[in-house]
């Protein structure tokens, strides 16, 4: 049943958020530390376990896939309810601080990723590229 999938997703979320809360408390901060990330790992393990035992029928999966597919529309709704006006009225200090943080953060991605990204981008432009193929298994596993 579809609800089994939705319930599995919801259960992972609540368990992950609860764990994140406990982690935050242990470290003495008023915040949830990685609850969503923990929930994601729980979902990966739970569905992997069930699938290996043949206990994950298509109907159950579709309960998870629905929310997966709703992700982009939800993000668009999120964008539409951001406080853009406040961001733009914060003045030069806020604007520069935010811009500099993004620029430096983006620039550091290839540094940590290791391989020079320029070479990869060129290869990606000519053919589908090795790096593109790396993203494929995640997709293939969806089936």
């Amino acid at each position: 049943m579809v609800i089994y999938g939705v319930a599995l997703l919801a259960g992972c979320m609540m368990l992950g958020l609860a764990t994140g809360d406990v982690l935050g408390h242990l470290l003495g901060i008023e915040a949830n530390l990685g609850g969503v990330g923990i929930a994601m790992l729980l979902l990966i393990f739970a569905t992997g376990y069930l699938k290996a035992r043949g206990k994950l029928p298509e109907a159950t999966v579709s309960g998870i896939k629905f929310w997966n597919a709703m992700y982009i529309p939800i993000v668009v709704a999120m964008a539409a309810s951001q406080n853009v006006a406040a961001a733009l009225s914060g003045g030069a200090v806020a604007l520069l601080a935010g811009v500099l943080a993004v620029v430096l953060g983006l620039a550091m991605v290839p540094v940590f990723a290791g391989k020079p990204s320029r070479e990869r981008a060129e290869r990606g432009a000519s053919s589908s590229g090795a790096s593109h193929a790396r993203a494929q298994p995640a997709r293939a596993a969806h089936r």
């Binding site: 992972c12 992950g16 992997g48 999966v61 992700y71 298994p137 969806h142």
Partner: peptide, 22 residues
């Protein structure tokens, strides 16, 4: 729709099919 609750639910749902090795 775009609030934290449904956003987080959808984010978690995207993890379905991810390989842990990666």
């Amino acid at each position: 729709m775009g609030g934290g609750m449904l956003r987080d639910l959808a984010i978690i749902a995207t993890a379905y099919g991810v390989r842990f090795d990666e």
